[in-house]
Design a protein around this nucleic acid. Structure first.
Lengths: 135, 135
DNA sequence: GCTGGCGTTGACGTGGGTGTCAAGGTCTAC
DNA sequence: GTAGACCTTGACACCCACGTCAACGCCAGC
């Protein structure tokens, strides 16, 4: 299988595959003419990479999973190193979510305060009868 | 006030201030020698920028707030354009949080499945008495 | 033999907010 | 006058996962 076919079957691009090879993540054998040659195992590895990326993993974080599969294990997450990446990722996600929720709360607070200020001002301008009732 | 003093008082760097000027976000007057000259009003604008950045706003998103202040309003969020940015940001944060929570759930699911698989395998290896009891 | 569709490598661009360096000008203090 | 702290502009570096383009090689079909 050549690069174009693999890219299509995995739903990615040839550019990405060349990049993965450059990182040493998905090295390819070469045919006699210099073309990259892939097999079904590579497709499996590539699908593992894409799935993890979809979860928000960086490419380097997918490496333990790929190497685990390449070592012959049934799943990419059958190895301790992969489980550690899961744990690190969960902690990272929790931290990120917490920070975003904090930011959201602060922005919401500012927004509500600003809206109240605007409405108060509008009310004051619309009813200067307060002045009249005082007089 | 020159650039170094303003940067220090706002807790940022001269590099950032030059960048903001390049964006037209915080233009500076020039002294006779070509040095940038800032006043207290600029410090106020800069603090607005830093506060919003702290909330996760991009620099372009701070522009309506800065222009609102520069137009003489008491707060950066006294203008409708600023309120719109708040609303857009809240929607964006909600969307981002939801996607992260979804990713977190999926990773957690994978993690738990992988741990169970590992433990099942360990249990099977540790007690091959099943074989003996069969015989 | 020629066209078109594959493949190859290499290099630069993207975005955001700076860090850092180079090569110089300006001001203050001694 | 000179050292040192400040300022100026301009330019390149960073991160990440590629997109895009250039200039070329390989191969199948007509």
């Amino acid at each position: 299988m050549r690069i174009g076919e693999l890219a299509e079957r995995a739903g990615t691009t040839t550019r990405a595959l060349r990049y993965y090879e450059q990182l040493g993540l998905l090295p390819a054998r070469r045919a006699g003419n210099g073309y990259r040659a892939y097999d079904e195992g590579d497709l499996r590895l590539l699908r593992e990479i894409r799935t993890l990326q979809d979860f928000g993993f960086g490419l380097e974080e997918t490496r333990p999973f790929v190497e685990c599969l390449r070592a012959g294990h049934p799943e990419g997450d059958s190895c301790p190193a992969s489980l550690e990446v899961y744990e690190r990722k969960l902690a990272e996600l929790d931290d990120c979510i917490a920070r975003l929720q904090d930011a959201r709360a602060r922005v919401a607070g500012q927004f509500e305060r600003a809206v109240r200020a605007r409405d108060d001002l509008a009310a004051a301008e619309q009813s200067p009868r307060c002045e009249l009732t005082k007089e």
